[in-house]
Structure formats: C-alpha cells, structure tokens
Amino acid sequence: MNLFRLAGDMTHLVSVVVLLLKIHTIKSCAGVSLKTQELYALVFAARYLDLFVHFVSLYNTVMKLVFLASSFTIVWYMRRHKIVRRTYDKEHDTFRHHFIVLPCLVLGLLLNEKFTFREVMWAFSIYLEAVAILPQLVLLQRTRNIDNLTAQYVFFLGAYRVLYIFNWIYRYFTEPHFVHWISWIAGIVQTLLYGDFFYYYILSWKNNVKLELPA
C-alpha cells in the first residue's frame, strides 16, 4: 500500500470521526444531510457484500467494518436519537436522493467489469458514491451558519477523494496491469464535485471568516 492510499483512507476515517464527534458529543446534526448519509450506508452495504467471503487483509476487513458500522450509526442517530433527530434540518435537505439510486443501478448493470452479482453491485456502489455527496453540497448552500465541524467533515471527505486519485496515478506507474476505468472515471467525477466547495473553503480559511457557499 502506498502513502497516498494510506493518507486517503486516513482522511476518510477522520471525516467520519469528525462527524460522529459532532453528533455524539454536541448532540447535533445541524447542516448534515441525512440523504447523503443514507446513500453512503447503501454504498458500503453494496460494496462490502463480500466482506466475509473475499479476504484481502486485516487492515481491509477492519476498515470495511468501520465504514459500514459508522455509516449506519450516523443514519440511526439522525433518524432515531431523540435529541439529535430534532436538530436535523429536514426543510432544507430536499434533494431527491431516491432518484439517483436507480440510474446508478442501471449504470451498474450496463457498465461493469463482469456481469456477476458482486461485480454489478460493486460498479453500482462506485457510481452511487460518486454522486452521494450532492445532497450534502446542496444543503450546505442553503445553510446560513455552516459550523466548523460540518465544513471539516466535507473537507476531509473531499481530501480523501483527491488522495485516491494520486494513489491511482502512483499505482498505474508502479504496478503492471493496474487499470480500473470504472473507479477512475467515477472517482474523477466525484472529486470534481468538490471543486466549488474547496474553493470557498480555502478562501474562508485564508481570510479567517466563516464558510458560506453562494447559492
């Protein structure tokens, strides 16, 4: 495993920890999109179906379990926890997330590395992950007071995607036959979605002012 990949996984982990910290200690999910969190739970459930069948390494298994457990825990908090769920900004989290699941499934059925159940679900999860951040970005645009933890959560999530691209470039030149068009193209699309956010995040950080996204 190269340094980019490890750094990418770690920023992904940090993003989840930041979000759980906010929800668990402050008991607030203000500014957090439940739609995005539900999509991530679906992404991990579809991709890690083979968790107990296909063993890669202890590291891989532990990380998969962490991402599965954390995504479902966050959804549980936002839907069921009696204090947290009251802080959910339902009125502004209106992205029709169900309508992007079906196209991703169709895309997974059409574009996959092999027409088997696991491969179709894997491709589906890759496509869905690429667009899963959209409801969160829309909600951020509509949020007047974006708190630091929410902004940092999205920043770390975006950083994870950027680092994965560096990881692929590194692997392309160091490993023979390392070509995964599906994850590369979907991954680049996913990273581009963060472009706007990054621009305003860095601007707010440089000028030392609160983050605000123009509508």
Binding site: R5, V56, S57, K64, K114
Partner: peptide, 10 residues
Amino acid sequence: KDAFEKKDEL
C-alpha cells in the same frame, strides 16, 4: 483470479 479478487481498495 477473477476481477473481483483483485479489488483491494476501499
């Protein structure tokens, strides 16, 4: 090894 066995990323 089939394609799936080669997938080692999260």
